[in-house]
């Protein structure tokens, strides 16, 4: 198990050494927020849940839960999603492997 974990960490270490952003090298999600009215998430995988008060997104290695009021999806394409509305909280949780 320890060896597997070490193997998984190699790209992360390379990215850190070469100073390459993780979203480019590892496909980590990049979140850009404009006040609490607009949230742009790059490198998402899929939508797990969509309600007016909660949107749950799946990224490469975590779940992002957005809570708020009157949440809409402004645009969605294969790697980018724009969430609009009054965002009240963001919650991150690990995907169990």
């Amino acid at each position: 198990m320890g060896r597997k974990k070490a193997k998984r960490n190699i790209p992360k270490k390379i990215a850190k050494t070469l100073d390459i952003p993780e979203d480019v090298m590892l496909g980590a999600p990049r979140l850009t927020m404009m006040s609490n009215r607009e949230l742009r998430i790059e490198n998402h995988k899929s939508i797990l849940e969509y309600e007016t008060d909660k949107i749950t997104l799946c990224t490469k290695d975590m779940l992002i839960a957005i809570s708020g009021d009157a949440l809409d999806i402004g645009v969605i394409c294969d790697d980018e999603i724009l969430v609009t509305g009054e965002i009240l909280s963001l919650e991150f949780s690990k995907i169990r492997s």
Partner: peptide, 12 residues
């Protein structure tokens, strides 16, 4: 999204 079909102004 996976088939690259653009949807916008999505409202529940």
């Amino acid at each position: 999204a996976a088939k690259n079909i653009l949807l916008w102004d999505i409202k529940r």
